[in-house]
Structures are given as C-alpha cells and as structure tokens.
Design a binder for these strands. Structure first.
Lengths: 233, 233
DNA sequence: ACACTCAAAATTGTATACAAAATAGCATGC
DNA sequence: GCATGCTATTTTGTATACAATTTTGAGTGT
C-alpha cells in the first residue's frame, strides 16, 4: 500500500510519488504511466491522476495531453535560475527571521544545527545517513523561511528547495566529495540568534551563492570524469 | 459550454474558473461545489475536480477533505506578504529584462504602454474598459518577467500577480479613485529600453512599494467609508 | 530492403456509478 | 421551549467503464 497514510488517498499517493521522485528512485527523464503507479500503490487511477496534477504544478513532472508524464530533467540552466531566485528569497527570509525569531525558534534552529553535527560526526556513514545530513541542512532553510512569518514566502521557498534537493540527490550524491557548508549554516543561525538582520541576510545570500558555486564545481568535475571515461573506452 | 476551448476540458474548466474567481464573479469566501460548476459548464465532475486541484495549488481556492472548496479570502496580511515578495522578484526581473531585452521585446513593452494610454484616454469608460486598463498594467509586469529570461521567476511572478489582481478586482475596483501608475510604468520601460539595469530595478522596486501604499490607502478609505455608513445607520 | 498504410494495443481524457463522511433538518424526549 | 440524537441529504473521495487519440508494429507493395 502507500508509504505514508494520510487522510486521503490522493495525498498519500502524492507524498509517495514525490518522495520517489525527489530521492531519485524514479530517475529523471523516465516515463511514468498512471497505471503503473496505480497498480504499484494498489489504488485506482483517479487519485494517481490528481497526484500527478499537483506534481506537475510543482514542476517535478511534465505531462503533455495523451502522452503521459515524464519526470522532469533539470538542466544546469534551471539550476541557475533556481539559485538566482533562492538568493533573493532566502536572503530576505533570513533577514525577517533574524528580526522576529522567538527564543523557541532559536532553540529549534540550534537543535537542527546540532543534529547536523551529529550526523556529520558518524565515522562510517551509510548513504542513508548522508542523505539525512543533506536533508537537515536543507530543512534548516525551510524552517528559517517558516520563522520569517511570511507564509507565502515560506511556501515558495519550499517549492524551490524541493527542486534543488531533487537536483542534488539525483545528479550529485554519487560524489563523495559533497560537503555541507556547516560553518556557514552555523554563522547564519548565530546572526539570527543575535537578532542581526542585516548580517544574517548578507550571510544567507553569500551562502546561497557559495552553494551554487559548489554544485557547479561538482557538475564540472562530473562532466570531466564522464569525458575521461568516454575517451578511455 | 466553456468560455475558452483549449485542448482538454480540464484546461478549459481551469481557465474559466480562474477567470470567474480572479474577476470576482465568484466572490471571495463563497462556497463552490464541484457539481455546480460541472452543471454550469456542462461537463462531468472529473475535469472540474482537476481544475480545483490546480486552483488550490495556485492559492485561489482552499479546500478541506469532504468539505468542499471556498474561494480564498485574502486579508491585508496576505496582501502585504505578496507585495513584499513582489518587490524582490519584480525588481530582479526588471533588472534582468533591462540587461537582456531585444528590440522586439522593447517594441512589445512600448506597445503595451500605448494600449494603456489609449484605454486611459477614453472619455466615458465602461467598467470593462477600466478592467482592461488594469489588466494591461499588470500584464506589463508579466511580460517584463518573461523578458527576464528566467522561466522559473516568470512563473512565480505570474502566480503572485494573479493573486494581487484578484485582490484588487474584488476589493477595490468599486472605488473610482483607482489610478494606474502610468508614469512609473513608462519610466520603467524607458530604463529597460535604455539598458540601464540598475535604474530599472530601482524604479521597479519603488513602483511596487508605491502600488502597495496606494492600495493600502484605498483600503483605509474603504474601511473609513464603511465605518461612516455603519455609524450613519 | 525500404517505405507506406492500416490496424491493434496502450494510454490518457471524460463520464458515471458507488462509497464514505459531513452537515443539516426533523423528531422526540425532557 | 430547548436540547439531543438520529436520519436523510448533500458532497466529496474512489473506482470503473467508455471514448478518443497516439504510438507502435506488422504486413504488403514497390
């Protein structure tokens, strides 16, 4: 049956499908039919269709009339676009969060930071644990957006972060060199806790740019590696 | 049948419903049942359901399981949130547009400006013509976002602009004092045509702030008027 | 061997039937 | 007369049946 059982089948199917897509279980570019999913999750096509509709709205799948759905393949351009927007939104959200965070909010952020540290310190990490660290790192930004108090901003940032997460997980997680900018996260949380909105915003924007450059560097490395393999064969 | 006939019924229903909601034909806060719409548009419930799903994702209706859908009532807070984000996104999009606009793009913007002028100059305007002027004014921002070249940014801005349009049309259009900031639009287009990204961005951000203040002022006037009526009765 | 045509299979789009849940109204009891 | 509980209606959630369209493949003709 479904992975997570919520109130309605539609929501449950949506969650399952989204998880399968974001984590790369269903690889980008692969064609997915309603029937496959319906059979796999043991439900009828109706809730599956509605889940697909929402996923299409999220930009995680693209579907053309009577031709089925394809898991979105993000190219480097979409990635650049997403990070360009993230710099604006994340920066602003972090400023707002620094200005309005309560003690409870601050404790929550520090706890996430600690969890990140804990996961990073595990000696021989499984892939699952590496996933988790990445996920907490991204969740930190979601929580900051939530603390900002701007509900719309929070929603939009969550949508973008989903896509970034999808991209990183499906394209780059095979690289062991991946590193989370733990220091930068810590600095941002510090600035928020100190209530220094201006500094928090500046740090957040720099962090987004840094993450972007880091990913672009890894993509280059990946491309080089693939070229090397192609030449060698 | 449906208002606009596109490829699929779902799309057609979506367009019709969205138009009815954004223009206030279906007033905010009113409950809408799938069956009503299905009967009204002479289609089955299935495409109506899918249209509602998309509208819910757009934030134009909110639906809870087995309780039907309600046209979203925007309060002043949502309005502030939307304009806060618009200032960021619109500003950035305008900067990008100024940096990359082709001659064709510039001609398109100038044509929209001219259309705005034409509609504004009509002596005794019908409500429909007032609608149109407002719509072209908002469309100008959509086109600028499109010209920016950042597809994701364009999509997000369109979503926000839909909501702003909805809010203004349903809450404020009854006021005759409404004025479009034609001069500001012209200045922005000028800056884009001159390729002055920095100035275009600054103007755009100021324009969003100005529009926000203008709407807030009108809201205050509306509130005062309603209080006056309440006291008088 | 290649290309073209037609048909069959697969897949989505739409409609309808049925089930479950929530709301509203009515009746009954206090 | 009011409150409470039950039933009936309304409405969404899900499943399935049917229609339309696209794709694929086989078969035939050149």
């Amino acid at each position: 049956m479904a992975k997570e059982t919520k109130n309605t089948l539609r929501d449950s199917v949506y969650s399952s499908l989204k998880a399968m897509i974001v984590t790369g279980q269903i690889p980008p570019g692969s064609r997915v039919t309603e029937n496959d999913i319906a059979v796999k999750l043991n439900v009828s096509r109706t809730p599956v269709r509605e889940a697909f509709n929402r996923l299409e709205r999220d930009g995680l799948v693209t579907g053309r009339p009577r031709q089925g759905y394809v898991v979105t393949e993000f190219d480097i351009n979409m990635f650049r676009e997403a990070f360009e927007i993230r710099e604006l939104l994340d920066g602003h959200a972090t400023e707002l969060a620094a200005a309005t965070a309560t003690e409870q909010d601050k404790a929550r952020l520090r706890a996430m930071l600690a969890e990140c540290e804990r996961l990073a310190a595990i000696p021989d990490r499984t892939t699952r644990e590496k996933f988790q660290e990445l996920e907490v790192g991204i969740d930190l930004h979601r929580v900051i957006a939530e603390i900002s108090g701007n509900v719309m901003l929070h929603g939009m940032l969550c949508g973008i972060l989903d896509k970034c997460q999808h991209y990183v997980w499906t394209e780059l997680l095979w690289l062991d060199e991946w590193k989370i900018a733990r220091d930068e996260h810590a600095e941002i949380v510090d600035a928020i806790c100190a209530g220094d909105a201006s500094r928090a915003g500046t740090l957040a924007r720099a962090h987004v740019r840094g993450s972007r450059d880091n990913v672009l560097r890894l993509l280059q490395a990946k491309s080089d590696y693939q070229n090397f393999l192609a030449k060698a064969s």
